[in-house]
Design a protein around this nucleic acid. Structure first.
Lengths: 189, 189, 189, 189
DNA sequence: GATGAATGAGAATTCATTCAT
DNA sequence: GATGAATGAATTCTCATTCAT
C-alpha cells in the first residue's frame, strides 16, 4: 500500500468544511474547504466522493460528536432533573466550545442536501436522551408527544440559548440557567 | 417615469422566490424565480436591484406578513395567557397556511446574506409581542432576560411545532396545544 | 423579445465544432469551440443545452447537409448507373469541399456520444439513395442484403476514397473514378 | 534490475485498454484501464511511459495481431481468389472473435493520438497482403492505384461487414459471403 | 417597461502523472 | 516493482447581471 488515506487529513477537511459551512452554508466552495485544510483541490475528492457526500458526512460527524459530548459523564443514577440538566449543560458547553460546528449544524439541518436517511441517523444519536426526556414528562405538557418532538424542542431551545450566548458571551451563565429553567418548567409544568 | 412598476408583479416575484428559497435556500436561481413569476429573467432586476436585495426584501415581507397575522384580532384586553395563546395560535395557523413562507423564513434566518440591519428590523415587527410576553414572565424562568430572547424562544418552539405538524398534519391540534402548554409553563413556571 | 437566438451564431458554433471535432474528436473543448465561433464560453450553452446536445446536432446537420448535396441535381430519369455515379461524385465533391465536416462525421460516427436514435435519423437522410442502390443490385453480390448494408458499403468505400484524395489531392480525379468503378463492379458484378 | 516487468501484466493492461477504448475511445481513463487489468493506477506507468505510449502500443499490437491472423494457414500456392478469400475470411473471423480489439482499432484508426509513424508501421503488417491484392487486379478497376489504397478499401469493406454481423449475428455467414463477393467483383470487375 | 441573449467569473469534478512508502 | 495518495491543470456547466432591441 502506497500511503493510507490519512485520518488526520480527513479531519482537517471536515474541520475546514465546518468553518466555511457555518457562514456560507452549503454554498461553501470545495476549493476553499480544501485550501482551508491545507490540501489541494483535487485531494478533497480522494476523501469524499463529491460535495454532497462531504456535507452529509460533516452532518453525521457533528451530530455524533455532539451526541458523545452529551453522554460524557452522564449521571445515570441521578434523578431525572439532574440528568436533564447534565445534558443541557453539556449541550451549551459544546456549542460554546465549537461555535463553527454549531453553526454548521444549524445550516445543514435546514438543507435539502442532507439525505433523509442521514437526518434520521443523526437523530438516532439522541434517541436515548430523547427517551429520558420523554420519561421525565409522563405528566407534563408534552405528555403523549413523541420523544422526537421533545428532543426537537429541547434542541430548539438550547440552540436559541446558544445564539444569544454567542451574541453576548459574558451573560453565558445566566442564559444557560434561564434556558434550562424554561425548558424544565415547560416539560414538567 | 412612464408606467410605475407593477405591484402585482413585484408580489409575484416574492411569492415565486419564497417557493424556491424554501427548498433551495439562497441558491435559488434568479432565472427560476422570474420564470415562476411569469416574467423573464431581466425583468426581475427592474424590481430588485440585485439578488441580495430580493432576498432581503423577501425576508422583510415575510416577517411583516407574519407580524401582521399575529396582531390580527389581537385581544388587547384579555389576560396575558389569552393574549399569548392568541399569538401562538395565529403563528401556527399562519405557518400551516403558508408553508413556503415559513420554510423560506427558516432558510433566510440562517443566511449571511440577510443584512444585520434587516434582521433587526424583522425582529422589530415582533417587539410589541415580545414585550407582552416579557411582561407575562415578570416572575418566571426568563425573568430579567431580554424580550428579544423571550421572543426568540417563542419562535423556536413554534417553529419546531410547525415542523412536526408538517410531518404529521392530522395531529395538528394536539401539537398546537402541547406546544403552547409547554411554552406557557416554561415562562410562567 | 430582446434579441432572437442568432441562426448565424448557431452556424458559427457548428462550424467551429466541426473543425475541432475533426481532429480532437469528442474531446474538443467547448471553450475552444465557442472561441472559434467568436463567442464567449457561456454563450455556447444558450444555443446547445450541453456538449452532448451540440455533438448530436452537429452529427445530424452534417448528415443532412451531405444528404442534401447528394440529391442536388439528381438525375431521376437517368439509368441506374448514372444515378449512382451522380451520388458518388456528389459525395466525393462534398467531402473534398468540406474536409472538416467529413472528418468530424467520421469521428462522430464512431462515438458513443451520438444517440442511437440520431444515428438512425442520420441514416434516414440516405434511405432514398440506399433504396436506389439496392434496386441496382437485384442480381448482384449484395442481392438480398438490406439497403442499409449497401449504403454503408457505399459510404465506406467513398470515405476511403476521400481519405486518399486528402493525402494526394492531385490524384483526385483518378481516385474518384477508380473508387466508383470498384463500387459499381462490386454491386453489379 | 531486480525483476523484469511481467509480460503477463503488460498483456492484461493492453486487453483492458482494448475493452475500454472500444467504447470510450482515447478518453478511456488510465485508472480504469489499470483496474480492469487487476493492477493499481501507478503500476500502469511502469509498463507504459504515458497514455499516448499505451495507446500507440495498443494500436500496434492489435494491428500485428490481426496481421498474424490473416497469414495463418495462408494458402501461398492457391490461386489469387482463394488467397483473397482466405484473408477475407480470416479478417471476419478475427473481428467476430475479438470484438473489443476490432472496435478499439476502429477508434484508434481515427485518432490523432496515434503517431503517423505508427500508422505506417501498422499498415506495414499488411503490405504483403496488399501487394497480393494489388496483383490480383492488374486489369481491374483499381489498376494503377497503390496497394495501400486497395488494402484500405479491403479493410473498409470488411469493417462494414463486421459491423453488420455484430448487429445481426445469425446472418454472419451470409454477410461474410456477400461482402467478399462484392469486394472480389469490385477489384476483378 | 419588458425581454432574453450575451457575458465571464466561478464551481464541482476528472484525470494523467508523480513519488513516498 | 507495486501501490495509491497527492496534485493541479483542464473541463463542463451555472448563474447573476447587463444592455441592445
Amino acid at each position: 500500500m502506497a500511503r493510507p488515506l490519512s485520518e488526520e487529513k480527513r479531519e482537517a477537511i471536515l474541520t475546514s468544511a465546518a468553518k466555511l459551512v457555518a457562514t456560507l452554508s452549503t454554498g461553501a466552495p470545495t476549493a476553499g474547504i480544501a485550501k482551508g485544510a491545507g490540501l489541494s483541490e483535487g485531494t478533497l475528492f480522494n476523501y469524499f466522493a463529491n460535495k454532497d457526500e462531504l456535507l452529509n458526512q460533516l452532518y453525521l460527524e457533528i451530530k455524533a460528536d455532539l451526541g458523545k459530548a452529551l453522554l460524557t459523564a452522564y449521571p445515570s443514577n441521578a434523578d431525572i432533573r439532574s440528568q436533564s440538566l447534565h445534558v443541557w449543560d453539556s449541550f451549551v458547553e459544546w456549542g460554546a466550545k465549537y461555535p463553527m460546528k454549531r453553526k454548521a449544524m444549524r445550516q445543514l439541518s435546514v438543507s435539502e442536501r442532507i439525505r433523509e436517511e442521514n437526518k434520521r441517523q443523526g437523530a438516532a444519536a439522541f434517541s436515548d436522551i430523547n427517551r429520558m426526556l420523554e420519561k421525565s414528562i409522563a405528566a407534563g405538557a408534552l405528555k403523549g408527544r413523541s420523544s422526537a418532538f421533545v428532543g426537537a424542542i429541547f434542541e430548539a431551545v438550547a440552540e436559541t440559548t446558544l445564539e444569544f450566548i454567542a451574541r453576548d458571551p459574558k451573560e453565558r451563565e445566566r442564559y444557560k440557567q434561564s434556558g434550562f429553567e424554561f425548558f424544565w418548567n415547560g416539560i414538567s409544568g
